[in-house]
Amino acid sequence: MTIRMIGRHIREGLKNMWRNGWMSFASVSAVAITLLILGAAMVVALNAEQLSTYVTGELEINVYLNQQVTDAQGQQVAREIDQLSGVKSVQYISKEEGFKRLKKMVGTQYASFMESVNSGNTLPVQLVVKAANPRETTKVAAEILSVPSVHNIQDGENVLGKLFSFLNAVRDVGLAFVIALIITAMFLISNTIRLAIFSRRREIEIMKLVGATNWFIRWPFVWEGILIGVLGAAIPFAIIAYGYQFLYHYSGGAFVALSFPLMKAGLVAHKIGGILFGIGIIIGLWGGIMSVRRFLRI
């Protein structure tokens, strides 16, 4: 097929779109809305993935020793834990250090009260342990718990598990929603092209009579579908790419409440661009081919 032919088919496809203005608009909108939702879901998913990697990397085990353990004994326990396999580092927080932190957390309002209890510091020695492999944090935590004079531990796994199962549920619901929308969009496109075929049936009849090949007749309708798909992908892509870039700069590159780093705007555009345009083209192509097959029967 020559360039001239491809050019002709695309031109005819555009002409079809123009002639059925409102139906084309509806189809493009359907694809655009579908892909906008898909794109937004992907932005969330990408950042959730980034978040989980980040959080897992930052995962710490807070170990509280028995209250009667002194600082000197605590140092000994810290060394013991450091020897355990799978432990990367142990940070020692003495009773005094712990109290300072607590004072800072409580704030100036209760400063005088805090001063009064200072003499009787009853805080336990705290150790902050990091596992060599963040994924084995739970295992390491269990080992630490069996060390004598360890009172209790907080490994954060519980919170993380809840977060992940929530993100998974969001993803599944979103996916079902997007699939339903994709089917609607395909249906609308195939309907639009059916109208284009209908409005050009006289031309098609004459084309057949004078010996145009079937594909020569089909191509413009297939291109119409592709163009609807591409246009339907370009709009949400632009919205998401620019919208995300704006949010990224606005928030200074970190998620406000949790202060974890967001995925870079350029990377997000790169990752969703291929998928949005790919799905857009597939939806359009499918809609086009289906209607050509069903309604042209040539």
Binding site: R202, E203, E205, I206, K208, L209, V210, G211, A212, T213, N214
Partner: peptide, 22 residues
């Protein structure tokens, strides 16, 4: 064959009562 029909038509000129013009 169905896909060879166009090549037959290129050797035949067809004319109708209702002209079939665009």
């Amino acid at each position: 064959k169905e896909r060879k029909v166009p090549y037959l038509r290129r050797n035949i000129g067809v004319i109708f009562q209702d002209f079939k013009l665009l």
